[in-house]
Amino acid sequence: MKVTWAYDRGDHRDNHEADLTDPAALEALLHEIHEAAEPVAITIFSDTTDDPDELPPGLQIGLGHPTHAFAVHIADDGGYLTDPTVQSPSGGLSFDLGGVPTEYPAEHLRIRPETAIQIAATYLKTGGEAPHVPTVAE
């Protein structure tokens, strides 16, 4: 699957792309991105669309904030995933989306970064099956 992310660097966009098939390699990459502590939206997909302004079906996660992340399944029946045990932050948080700083509302940020990484690895491992928040037993 393709993994893309970009940062706003003021005078330019710092675009990144990787093709990954190994869930462990994806986890390592996502940990590295998260540890850089620059909030960014990462898109994981297998098929592209004809419209460059439209997100392809896939998964998008937000990493780089120390305590909160997001995960959204991009599909007709998709939506944001939330963990009922995670409290929303006091306000929305900004993540670079395609190199554009984008505010995400607090109610969409009820995932821990480690959980978002686990969701992404499982998404790759299952070949793009609809993601879910893992249970303690998983």
Rank of each mutant, 00 (worst) to 15 (best):
T67H: 13
I42A: 04
P84N: 11
I111M: 10
G91R: 13
L26N: 02
Y104P: 00
S90E: 14
A37R: 15
A121G: 13
D11S: 10
G127E: 10
P57T: 04
A36S: 14
L93M: 07
G64V: 00
F70Y: 04
E129W: 15
E38P: 01
V86W: 07
G78R: 03
T85M: 12
D51R: 08
L20M: 09
L55V: 01
Y104E: 04
D19T: 14
I33K: 02
T82N: 07
G92T: 12
L109N: 05
T21K: 14
G99H: 13
L63G: 01
D14K: 05
T115C: 08
P101A: 04
V40L: 05
L30D: 02
T82G: 05
I117Q: 12
A37I: 12
A130I: 06
D22K: 11
A120E: 05
T48P: 03
N15G: 11
A41S: 08
E38D: 11
K2L: 15
I42T: 09
S46F: 13
A41M: 05
E38Q: 13
A69H: 03
A36E: 14
S94C: 15
A41E: 02
P84M: 11
L109V: 11
E129A: 15
A130D: 06
V40E: 01
G92C: 13
A120Y: 04
A41N: 01
S46I: 08
T4L: 07
G98W: 08
D8C: 04
Y7A: 07
Y80T: 05
H12P: 03
E35H: 06
G127W: 12
L81F: 01
S90T: 13
P113E: 06
D77G: 02
L29Y: 03
A25H: 04
I61K: 01
G128E: 10
A6T: 04
A69G: 06
Q118P: 10
W5C: 00
G62Y: 01
A121S: 14
H31D: 12
E54H: 05
L109R: 06
D51T: 04
L81N: 00
G128N: 11
D11N: 08
G78W: 03
